[in-house]
Nucleic acid binder design. Structure first.
Lengths: 190, 190
DNA sequence: AATTTAAGACCGACTGGTTGGTCTGTTCTT
DNA sequence: AAGAACAGACCAACCAGTCGGTCTTAAATT
């Protein structure tokens, strides 16, 4: 971590995670980073922009991983497995980002919100499309509702941010494998 | 809705859901309720207490439903099915409460937070205990991790608050049945 | 090589608007 | 009559953002 910008993001992330966006003042961020108001506003136009940057770095990373998984494999089953696994792995890298992402998104300003929403919808659609493919190929059950099943999977996986701790009993890969197992049993044919 | 207290809760619920706890001022609540600061502070000691009341009414209701389901049936399978179904039904009744519950819980003051956490843990344990019972009785797979499976189920179900709309294609009971189907396929033996 | 110039990085006292909460009344109810 | 229910002007605290200024660094000029 060489530059101040990254330091500010790093500090604010942990503060936001614990106290929420509005529970943390710019002065607190600045203090915990070891800089000043001037330093902060030299790198960010506003507190709101900082919130956006946190949102954007996370969703951009996740989206790219999902595209890679989608394009690397042919079978819908393998695709979905990899999308889930790669997403779950992100919890070890971006846990605080994710917490802020799901906890504070209502506080994004309209313009920022729109940008984030687009990427989030893309991610959602990758999953739903994969379920669609799986049904078409005969891998997945015909009677699945693509929308609801997609949201069920997303929910199961996303919720992890509420309870996952690196120091917990199970590693993130173990958790990912459990999710994949549960999901596959419920959507695979026969 | 006869008394002012309920009116205030009702109005604030929708405001909080859309703009978040800190995105809504007491003046806005008071205005949208059609009352005054005096009216508000006659019924609530603080804005924070209002937040707590919203949390508490929801979790108390849900917890009671879960206990009833747990005590009404004998088989773990049936128990779990009913717990899930009864919980999902709550979305039609308490959608705004739930949104606030999961979005704004970081802003609960320490004392209030503790009270809520206790009830939330009780709810979580009802599910985990039921999974435990199901494994013991041979209904559920032996190799399930009770903790992770429990959190996976909770995640799937809880996440509904992020996207569910009464006006949507599927009714809440249909969604509940899909969840039960997915979950049962993944945890039932053979 | 020495000196000037200029821009980027960072500082921190200050401000203007906002917000939760108070307090003194007035009106309704029993 | 008397207490509960409500009204609304007012206040003190807080907080995001500003702005004039300093320090560092590296290129440009002499």
């Amino acid at each position: 971590m060489t530059n101040l910008r990254d330091k500010i993001i790093h500090s604010s992330l942990h503060l936001f995670e614990k106290h929420g966006f509005h529970g943390v003042t710019v002065n607190q961020i600045v203090e915990s980073t070891g800089t000043s108001k001037g330093g902060f506003y030299h790198h960010f136009t506003s507190k709101d922009e900082l919130l956006f940057v946190i949102h954007d770095t996370f969703i951009t990373y996740v989206l790219e991983k999902a595209y890679i998984a989608k394009n690397t494999y042919d079978s819908p089953t393998k695709k979905l497995q990899e999308i889930i696994k790669s997403f779950v792995q992100v919890f070890d890298l971006y846990k605080p980002h994710i917490s802020v992402f799901y906890q504070e998104n209502v506080y994004l300003k309209a313009d920022y919100e729109e940008l984030i929403k687009k990427k989030r919808d893309q991610f959602k659609n990758i999953i739903i499309d994969t379920i669609h493919e799986g049904k078409a190929s005969g891998d997945f059950r015909e009677d699945l509702s693509e929308e609801i099943t997609g949201m069920a999977i997303l929910g199961m996986v996303n919720w992890t941010y509420k309870w996952y701790k690196k120091s917990g009993e199970k590693s993130i890969d173990e958790i990912g494998n459990i999710y994949v197992d549960l999901i596959m049993r419920s959507i695979l044919n026969n």
